[in-house]
Design a protein around this nucleic acid. Structure first.
Lengths: 131, 131
DNA sequence: AAAGCATATTCCGCAAGCGGAATACGCTTT
DNA sequence: AAAGCGTATTCCGCTTGCGGAATATGCTTT
């Protein structure tokens, strides 16, 4: 039981993964968008997503060429994950890098989904090259 | 700024250190007592305390032969540390290993300090061999 | 000063994890 | 079937970190 917590903290112990998890709290996203939002190379993104997926911190689903990542459905999240995600979201509120990520994310929102607020996975990925 | 958070999570990403931090939330403790409470060898304890000290997650003070470790004074704690300590405390409430640690800690309480509730660092270390 | 106790450090072998380059895979379009 | 796109994997060199044994340090007692 302690080990699960340790695993969780290990997963959080990387800047790229933190950024991924933060972004995902706003809704699902496909890999190509992560590349844009985080401004990091494909390999890096893909590997970290793989890492998170292996450990159950995110779930993936394929839709044509795109793979969409999301946080696990709320009911499937451990209380520890839930608590730490909330804690994380709180901790990064004022962080410059996360703000930048969010800004780029919003741009995608505007370009991709007419739906105000939460993005729709399908819509979001139907315009991978837009913007 | 992100890196500080990452450092924090790295520090949390070890079972022994988690246990140390949990125990410390009940008050300061000297190394010999950690050995008893966590039931781990001296080197292991000392190294992890060193790790935490280097990164500012705990502070140390010498008193004769003993070295007493404590969480930094509340005002000196970053909001991130504070938040994550709280989150941690919440996450481990029902954990078996932490309960055992706590039980052993309480035994020390009884043996060392007549003061009900919080331990006093000095009193706690005046009886390193008791019990 | 010598011995004793509590704590810290060094040395070692080992495993995990990161980033990048190249390459492989899966699906879709032509 | 061939080409193209998005994503995943493998290989590699490198750094970090763990645990244990032995040893060193600092303070205290005799």
């Amino acid at each position: 039981m302690v080990m699960e917590l340790v695993q969780l903290y290990r997963a959080f112990a990387d800047a790229t993964r933190l950024r991924i998890l933060c972004v995902l709290q706003d809704g699902p996203l496909c890999v190509c968008h992560f590349q844009t939002v985080l401004a990091e190379p494909q390999v890096k993104i893909s590997k970290h997503l793989g890492y998170l997926r292996e450990r159950g911190l995110v779930v993936a689903s394929r839709r044509g060429n795109w793979v969409i990542y999301a946080l696990p459905p709320e009911r499937a999240r451990s209380t520890e994950l839930e608590a730490n995600l909330a804690c994380l979201a709180d901790c990064v509120k004022t962080d410059a890098e996360f703000k930048r990520d969010r800004a780029r994310l919003k741009k995608l929102d505007v370009a991709c989904s007419p739906v105000a607020g939460k993005r729709d996975a399908e819509a979001a990925c139907g315009c991978a090259e837009a913007g």
